[in-house]
Design a protein around this nucleic acid. Structure first.
Lengths: 204, 204
DNA sequence: GTCTATAAGGGGATAGAC
DNA sequence: GTCTATCCCCTTATAGAC
């Protein structure tokens, strides 16, 4: 722990570093990030980084674990909740996930890219695969449409939620002017996605 | 051009290098790729890489341009085709895009990640944004559902096509055993996606 | 055209003063 | 706890022999 424990709004050096690491790692990815970038972003010296976190790799693992929990933490409780019906799950997913992604637009591409580089490592961390396959949502989808693999619908739902954030630079560009437009666009999807999913699930 | 122009199935050194570069860059991304990796993958010396392509950056630009054309080259002719009706466009998109992505599963995450790192640079290369916004597909979507921004549907279609390839390690893992299962799963979507899009577009 | 050897610089990590 | 200076490996790129 740091000696200077700031009581006010300021962060300790330790906290400044990890905050900077979150920012730089999620923006540039592990390989393109230099520890010097993180130190500069934190407004402090490079040596402090190693003093507090030992190595770039260690610091990255901390951030990565956090970010995976952030990305999946919203989904799991909703998807596995036995108490609520299918329609409500979809509505909650759309609402909560879009809010989270709006606040962390770089998150999906970052996590998915890093997992791709190191799939084994992260698959063991969270046995997400089985968790999802045995979830209440999957059961409900299977009941509704026993003729179609429920994973299709899960992918569609997540894809509709996540893909706009991944494809944003292509569809919307990155100009400042477009930022408000993008935000409004994304907000519309909170209502639209549940309706589309309902339509997809209905038998023709 | 190389002096040794192989007439048979063998590739010239120049071609071996760019083939290796395609493979390594798409797999690991620009920052994590070392020119040594490419040279080794090509089965040749590091110096040859610079002899033929001057620098890592130059070689990357070649690959990146190719890969962007590969990723968008399938979409644009279909989306902008004035001759065919909406339903046919969706069917063709699903069919062609899934085939292309099955053959190049790393392509979307690679291109989207690299564009994110350097958005300006690549936006200028192809004025994709305007091309899409003025496309026949967008017009048809607008006619069908004037009450909803057609970009929503475009994103949904592309998301349903692309997202499985991006999220694959999370949903399916990377085990060899799952490879066939994933392939079969993806093939199903050629039929399913057009049906889902139709359902989404119908008025309730 | 292809190789070996090496230059030149970048980047992660640490020693040691304060 | 924090800083400056420095170490040292790794990586890109080139020089020069063949």
């Amino acid at each position: 722990m740091a000696k200077k424990q700031n009581k006010g709004t300021d962060l300790s050096s330790e906290e400044k570093i990890i905050a900077a690491a979150r920012k730089v790692f999620t923006k540039k990815g592990y390989a393109a990030t230099r520890t010097r970038d993180i130190a500069e972003e934190a407004g402090m010296n490079l040596a402090l980084l190693n003093y507090y976190y030992r190595s770039k790799e260690k610091l990255f693992q901390l951030v990565m674990t956090e970010k995976m929990q952030q990305l999946f933490g919203v989904i799991v409780p909703i998807v596995t909740n036995n108490e609520i019906k299918l329609e409500t799950k979809i509505e909650q997913l759309a609402d909560k996930y879009i809010d989270m992604l709006s606040a962390n637009p770089d998150l999906p591409l970052f996590v998915l890219s890093e997992i791709k580089q190191n799939p084994e490592q992260f698959k063991k961390k969270m046995q997400l695969e089985k968790l999802i396959r045995n979830s209440s949502l999957i059961q409900q989808l299977k009941e509704k449409r026993p003729d179609i693999d429920p994973i299709h619908f899960l992918i569609n739902i997540l894809g509709m939620l996540v893909f706009p954030f991944i494809a944003r630079p292509i569809i919307f560009g990155v100009d400042m002017e477009n930022q408000d437009r993008f935000h409004a666009f994304i907000q519309q999807r909170k209502k639209l996605i549940p309706a589309w999913v309902k339509a997809m699930l209905a038998r023709k």
